[in-house]
Each structure stands twice: as C-alpha cells, then as structure tokens.
Design a protein around this nucleic acid. Structure first.
Lengths: 169, 169
DNA sequence: GGTGAAACGATTAGCAA
DNA sequence: TTGCTAATCGTTTCACC
C-alpha cells in the first residue's frame, strides 16, 4: 500500500493512520436500508442505492469491518415469547457499591428479564429495560433487585408503547 | 421446560382458528440464533437447531408471518455516523396536552436525534433515547423540546454505556 | 417434517475507468 | 482506487416422499 506521494494531494494532513474515511452518501444510503431491513438481498440493495452488486458487497463488508455496522439482529416480539409486560427500572446504587459497578452489570445482564442496560450519568446509575410475563413477575424481579445490598433504591415505570423511528443517515 | 403434556392444563385448544400455536424448543432456538445474528445462512441455522434446511425456512417464514419476528435490522454505531453522545430524556406533558399525545409522538419520532420513544405509565409520559453529535447539539435538542407548549418539563441523563444482553428463549 | 433438483442470489477474479 | 462484468459457488425454493 503506497503511502508516499499519491495520497498527499487529497489527504487532510491530520492523521496518517486514519482508517476511518468519512461516510459518503452511498454508505449512508446502505446504512439506512440495512437498518430498515437487514435481510434485503445484496442485488436489491445495490439497485436501491445505485451501484453494482459487487461494489455493494464490498462496501457492506467494509462498513462491518470498520465497526459502523455492529451486527444484524432479529427483532423478536417480547409478547410472543411470553413476556408481554415491559417496564423501565431505574436503579441507584449505594455510594459504597459504585466501586463494584462491573459486578452489578454482569449480574443484571445475566437476568432473562433484562433487554437493555444503560449506565447513566445523572441521579440514577442505571436504567433497565425489562420484559416480564405479568405484573407478578415484574414485582418479583424488582423485589429481587432491591434485595441486593448494592442497591439504594429503584423506580419502576410501565411501558405502554415503544416506537422505534425509521432512522435516516 | 419440557413437562410432557402438562401445558394442556392452561392453554386448551379452545379456539378453532388459533393461528398462534405455542413456540416449541426449536422455534425458540431459531429466535435466539436470529437475534444473535440475523444474517446467518439458512443452512447453518438449520444445522444449529437440528432440522433440515427446508423445514428451517418454513419455520422462519411462519415466525415472521405470526409476528413473532417483527423484522431484521442492522445495528449501526451512532458514533460512526456522527452522533457519539447519547442521552435519555424523560418528558412530562402538560395535563391539557395529553389529549394530543399522538401528535407529540409523531413529532418526536420525526426528529433525527431520537432512536427510541417509550410511552410510559408513571410520573413521566415519555422517555426518549437520543443520540447527538455533541453536548451543544444535545442542548439544542432539549431546548427545542422545551420550546413546545405541550411539554411541562424534561429531564436529561447522559448515557455512559449501553449493554444489550444476549437473550435466550 | 425431510429430500433432491432447479432457480436464484452471493461471491470472486479479472478488467475498465 | 473504485466500480463493473462474467463465471463459480452456495443458498433458497418447490415438487414430491
């Protein structure tokens, strides 16, 4: 890979080891399409964004390798798998327990009820997005959380609805 | 939870048009795999869950048609697309504005900063998961929200980290 | 629910801009 | 360096067991 003279004319003389070229409009179109439907065939994706299939494949692979695309996931309806009740549980740790936050994170992410764990800067330390079978299961979950001496208090809000906007890039 | 025929005690074949048979262990294995990697080839998926490829394809299609799988989405790193700063913004509406919640939802889901919008039962009405370029952009977003007369108040917490546990079914 | 052949899409190598 | 074309390879589909 020749680094010497050829790149000099265009390169923004900043980081010689820059492996993160900016996303061009085609990359952004690819991201928008794959976020909408991660299983669109490469042919169809290429046509939608206006490039050849092989080029499209190369770009998608590059986006994965650069970490722009972190993965592809199925969106499974929690209600269909026996967890129709969702809630947000904010958690405040005991001041002394903040030295063992890793331990807490490993604990909560091992619980089957927890869908997401956000580590926050604010009055609360964590926000947990949980899904349970019913209100009794949710109560059991919260009671179990509060039973750990690391935890100062929790506050639970039921989720009536969850909208995930279509994102454009 | 293979307990032989004991499920009959709760879910009876009462509805002749029941198009939602319970998920069997193979279905659950398929869901777990597709949630982990939505782009796994059908062959590999079939082998992992121990059925023939054609059967696997039929099951995946059925799971989609039944709404158990709601879609497949790429997970795009917000930082790589110019939005490295994430926050949770809780929103309380004016009492009078609760009759026009649809309007509010359509507004916030049209904003490019908003990744998720949760409609809550609790002290706050909404929780917004947002991603912005920097703290100035976040401030502008919150100021713009508070500028709408529907909104009573907001509270913003920065997100330091977000862990998405691997879910098993 | 499984099998095999035909149809389709994905991938690679080599070429053109 | 990037994108295109064409041949190979693997995957999906469908009729049938």
């Amino acid at each position: 890979m020749p680094e010497g003279s050829t790149t000099g004319s265009v390169s923004r003389a900043g980081r010689p080891n820059d492996v993160r070229p900016p996303l061009d409009p085609v990359d952004r179109a690819i991201l928008a399409e794959l976020e909408r439907d991660a299983r669109i065939p490469n042919n169809a994706l290429a046509e939608r964004v206006g490039i050849a299939p092989s080029t499209c494949l190369t770009r998608v692979r590059a986006l994965r390798e650069r970490g722009v695309i972190r993965g592809f996931h199925a969106d499974v309806d929690p209600a269909a798998t026996g967890r129709p009740l969702q809630a947000m549980v904010s958690v405040r740790l005991q001041a002394a327990a903040r030295r063992r936050m890793r331990e807490f994170e490993e604990f909560v992410t091992s619980l089957p009820e927890v869908r997401d764990c956000f580590f926050l800067a604010g009055v609360d330390d964590y926000l947990l997005h949980v899904a349970t079978a019913d209100s009794a299961a949710l109560r059991d979950f919260v009671v179990a959380l509060n039973g750990r001496e690391q935890i100062a208090n929790t506050q639970t809000s039921l989720i009536f609805d969850h909208v995930r906007p279509r994102r454009g890039y």
